[in-house]
């Protein structure tokens, strides 16, 4: 089913399942960094592929992108995007003081990939148990570059079957109010056949 034809109820289903999935992901992330983190899904957006880089804050904005393939009963891909300031804050929380700027090395890359792995696994397992499907994430891959360059990888995949993309925007909120918010974008890019299956299964919950 093309995203364009989704009605409000179906959009709500997608938003709610994403909220639940992200809730599980938040718990996992909290355990990893040792203090509570809340995740919120404020927006589920469906937009034209060509508008996605602008939606992310501009094609030249520096971002860390972590991508995983969804394997198992459903097919698709996941892309997690952190603006570089947010990736930096996330790393400070995870592995201690990082200095003033984001530096990519073996340790930081590995830590960020692990965050991607945990978020995607928790999200997929919550989604899978809700839909009675087995969803498995692949090994995560990472790129640190301009937003446009990082996302066109998934947009290309998507553009074979759709001219629209679905974005789930996620806010990560730390415990203390002084914490500057860590923002992230989460794309779930289901294959068209997978989206149908997804909505059918989710619809049974109504």
């Amino acid at each position: 089913m093309p995203f364009l034809n989704l009605n409000n109820v179906q959009m709500d289903i997608l938003k709610e399942t994403s909220n639940i999935g992200m809730g599980h992901a938040a718990t996992a992330l909290s355990q990893m960094i040792g203090h509570p983190v809340k995740l919120r899904v404020p927006h589920v957006t469906i937009t034209e592929i060509s508008k996605v880089p602008e939606y992310l804050g501009g094609a030249e904005k520096m971002m860390v992108g972590i991508t995983l393939q969804v394997l198992g009963d459903a097919r698709g891909s996941i892309m997690l995007l952190f603006p570089q300031e947010s990736a930096h804050r996330l790393l400070c929380n995870l592995i201690g003081d990082q200095g003033k700027v984001l530096i990519m090395n073996e340790v930081t890359i590995s830590a960020l990939k692990e965050v991607g792995n945990i978020l995607a696994s928790a999200y997929l397992s919550a989604l899978g148990s809700m839909l009675h499907k087995t969803l498995i994430p692949s090994v995560p891959l990472l790129a640190y570059d301009m937003a446009g360059a990082v996302v066109d990888y998934v947009l290309i995949d998507l553009s074979k079957s759709s001219d629209l993309a679905m974005l789930v925007e996620t806010d990560f909120i730390g415990e203390s109010s002084s914490d500057l918010a860590i923002k992230g974008h989460f794309f779930l890019i289901p294959d068209p056949s997978t989206l149908d299956m997804f909505l059918d299964a989710a619809g049974e919950y109504q």
Binding site: G58, A59, M146, A149, V151, D152, Y153
Partner: peptide, 15 residues
């Protein structure tokens, strides 16, 4: 377009 326009494409990855 024609001169003196500058055409810009931002953030090319695999594109």
């Amino acid at each position: 377009d024609r001169a003196p326009t500058v055409l810009k494409a931002y953030g090319l990855g695999s594109c």
